[in-house]
Amino acid sequence: MNCRLGCGACCIAPSITSPIPGMPNGKPAGERCIQLSDDNLCKIFGLDERPDVCSSFTATTDVCGTTNTDAIRLISYLEAQTC
């Protein structure tokens, strides 16, 4: 599955513990990444500054569902289960 352009769920729903440019302590679950544009596109996509955890994320139907709303719900659920 390819990421849905403009979804951004993986940049909002999960916590990220590694440093992100502009967010040196990472980000808590449910908070928009500072590098997520208003169009829900990663501003640092393809750059060395992008955290490895972000670069290694792969969209799959079981994680992202079939809609952006599904993705937020599923990733939020998975985040809650791993805390």
Rank of each mutant, 00 (worst) to 15 (best):
M1Y: 10
M1P: 01
N2P: 07
N2Q: 15
C3E: 06
C3G: 09
R4C: 02
L5Q: 14
L5W: 03
G6V: 14
G6I: 13
C7V: 09
C7G: 08
C7T: 06
G8K: 05
G8V: 15
A9C: 03
C10S: 12
C10L: 11
C10G: 09
C11P: 04
I12C: 04
A13E: 11
P14S: 12
P14F: 09
P14K: 01
S15R: 15
S15G: 09
I16Q: 02
I16V: 11
I16N: 03
T17L: 08
S18F: 01
P19K: 03
P19T: 02
P19R: 03
P19G: 08
P19F: 08
P19S: 05
I20R: 00
I20C: 02
P21T: 00
K27A: 02
K27M: 04
A29V: 14
G30P: 09
E31N: 05
E31C: 04
R32A: 05
R32C: 06
R32D: 08
C33F: 05
C33W: 13
C33A: 05
C33S: 04
C33D: 10
I34Y: 06
L36G: 05
S37M: 12
D38Q: 08
D38M: 10
D39P: 01
N40D: 08
L41M: 15
L41I: 14
C42R: 00
K43F: 03
I44H: 01
F45Q: 12
F45W: 13
F45A: 12
G46C: 04
G46D: 08
G46F: 01
G46T: 10
G46P: 12
L47P: 04
D48F: 13
D48W: 07
E49F: 02
E49L: 11
E49M: 11
R50H: 07
R50K: 15
R50E: 15
P51R: 00
D52H: 04
V53K: 04
V53R: 11
C54E: 03
C54G: 03
S55T: 13
S55P: 06
S56Q: 14
S56K: 10
F57I: 11
F57T: 12
F57C: 07
T58N: 07
T58M: 06
T58R: 08
T58G: 00
A59K: 13
T60L: 03
T60E: 12
T60S: 13
T61R: 10
T61K: 13
T61N: 11
D62L: 05
V63P: 00
C64Y: 10
C64R: 13
G65T: 06
G65R: 07
T67C: 02
T67V: 01
T67Y: 01
N68T: 14
A71E: 13
A71Q: 05
I72G: 02
R73C: 11
R73W: 14
L74G: 07
Y77A: 14
Y77S: 09
E79A: 12
E79P: 03
A80T: 12
A80R: 06
A80G: 08
Q81L: 14
T82G: 02
C83P: 06
